[in-house]
Amino acid sequence: MSILATVRDRRRERPVNRPPGGLGRTPVSYSVLVVLGLFAILPVLVLVFNSFKSSLEIGANPLGLPATLDLSNFAAAWRRGNMARGFANTAFLVAGTILGTWLVAGAAAYSLARLNLPGKRKIETYLFVVISLPVQMFIVPLFFLWVKLGLINTLVGLVVIYVALNTPFSVLLLRTFLVGIPKELDEAARLDGANEWQVATRVILPLSWPGFMTVGLVSGLGAYSELLFAVTFLIDVEKMPVATSFFQFSQGYSQLYNLVNAAGVIIVLPLIVLFLLMQRRFIAGLAASGSKG
């Protein structure tokens, strides 16, 4: 039997193991699920609808479908909200956080999982303790330390914080991926004359990329949406990521409902598209990071 046929068979088999149900047998479930679904999605639709309306139209028709699909709000929001700059800042934060976390946490996880590191247990315990520390425990001295180091009001300073915040969880997650790779593989590479760096990047990395994808997704998503550190550690509007500058914009121009809605759609669109493309990894990653967020 070909592999494809096996996969198809297994697919067909699956529903048998699952509890029975169907529209006819579970009308109560379906009605509850639809109500919950409407509760979740209608407010998002209102945002999308209103992003096409003029302020006047919003006043007359605050919740319903727009009369026309007018895109001028998006152009105006992009310009007046200076979103090009905001997205550039966000891109820097997200890329810096992902790369930094991969590098720092990846190296540490590699050492914990596969190298001859003394005091492994102690380091792991430290990481567990650090994960449970609330931000409030260190934010006050950190702020004044960043003032002293000249890192306040800089994107680099914020990236350093994000990388540090993501590292403990990422190390522990990546470690579980790295432990699973057979030792024989890197020993064979070493016998062939590869050094530690080559073993790590050429042998181990390709085998553990799902872990790195999850870590990248969680830390990148965090950097995209983070608010507390961004509003506390950045002062100039020119330096703010797009979500934080949206906040400033929406406070300052609360009457420009249409533009605020359009800007909101622009900001969340990349997230939703990304989620629809890689649902499984999103859910696994966010569940593993375990933040209330």
Binding site: L23, S29, L47, A243
Partner: peptide, 28 residues
């Protein structure tokens, strides 16, 4: 967990608000 048809769709619908950035959820 009790239904078969449409479960994936409902799961996506429920998860979308969690993806939104807090400042935009607040604005909505």
């Amino acid at each position: 967990s009790r239904i078969r048809r449409g479960a994936a769709l409902f799961r996506v619908l429920y998860f979308i608000p969690y993806l939104l950035v807090s400042v935009i959820t607040a604005q909505i």
